[in-house]
Design a binder for these strands. Sequence first.
DNA 1: ATAAATCGTTTGTGGTACGTCAATCATTAC
DNA 2: GTAATGATTGACGTACCACAAACGATTTAT
Lengths: 154, 154
Amino acid sequence: MATPPVTGPPIRRSAPLLDHLGRLMRLRGESVLAPLGLRPRHLVTLTMLREGGDCTQQALATRLAMDGTNLVGLLNELESLDLIERKRSPEDRRRHVVAMTAVGAELLTKAELALTAVEDEILAALDAGQRETLYALLQLATSKLCPPSPCGEC
Amino acid sequence: MATPPVTGPPIRRSAPLLDHLGRLMRLRGESVLAPLGLRPRHLVTLTMLREGGDCTQQALATRLAMDGTNLVGLLNELESLDLIERKRSPEDRRRHVVAMTAVGAELLTKAELALTAVEDEILAALDAGQRETLYALLQLATSKLCPPSPCGEC
DNA sequence: ATAAATCGTTTGTGGTACGTCAATCATTAC
DNA sequence: GTAATGATTGACGTACCACAAACGATTTAT
């Protein structure tokens, strides 16, 4: 018999593709973002802040899925550039509330503009509509990983 | 005037989201793939080989967008596990042609099965149809980055 | 045929970013 | 006052990427 025994339809995982394309974006993005004084990781953080709104520091760590320890250095860099600011939470003064500044929002827009060439290269096979769809799906998946609104818990 | 000067519609880049989700897949995937003796990077390589077919070593390096130097170690690991094999090219016998073995194809399938839980977690917000769409878009973008067929040139 | 040149692969090294762990300081809760 | 939580700092190990050089096999020229 040429028919395989019990095997169902072939499985196709997005994980390796996401890994690969994400890496490409990071690599190409580095060169483009460097003149702005940013690294890809900074951009991810700023994007998260814009989409999800202000956030407790440790909640942000959860949303970014990174160790709070590691986030500290990142926020230090962003804060020294006046892109974000840390305010003490009125309720619990131990906590820091991270908020994006006007300068941060502006630079984020500028950075996104600078990424146009990168996306054009990597998503060359996709037309405008498909890119829109892709963004919507990524956005949906990302936002669901941590509810944007209060985000005291993730 | 409250209206902003010349600014068009807000730009939304997929790059940071791809970066972030890709990193998540890599992180979560590590734990799941470790028992199989694989790392995420291995899976990307195997996936590429399956989608694009056999490939010259340097062509594969181009497709993976990594330095040929670094690819050597990766292939060594895969070859020691009998997942791929290096054959001399009949035309130019200096070149190595990288081919996935039956064992490799089998383990790849097994690994993809193991990634089910990871994708369920990260793409929780997407239903089956949306995941299908996402995969198709990622697949399209990836395959176009380097023509699968001869791949002597990329 | 033999020698030179070419191409691909391999080995080795250094630098960078990242993630994890342990310890310290400030603030709050019991 | 003592314990618990949040943020911070520091040190350590790891993975990754890029550069330089050596090696081997193969092709081209003579």
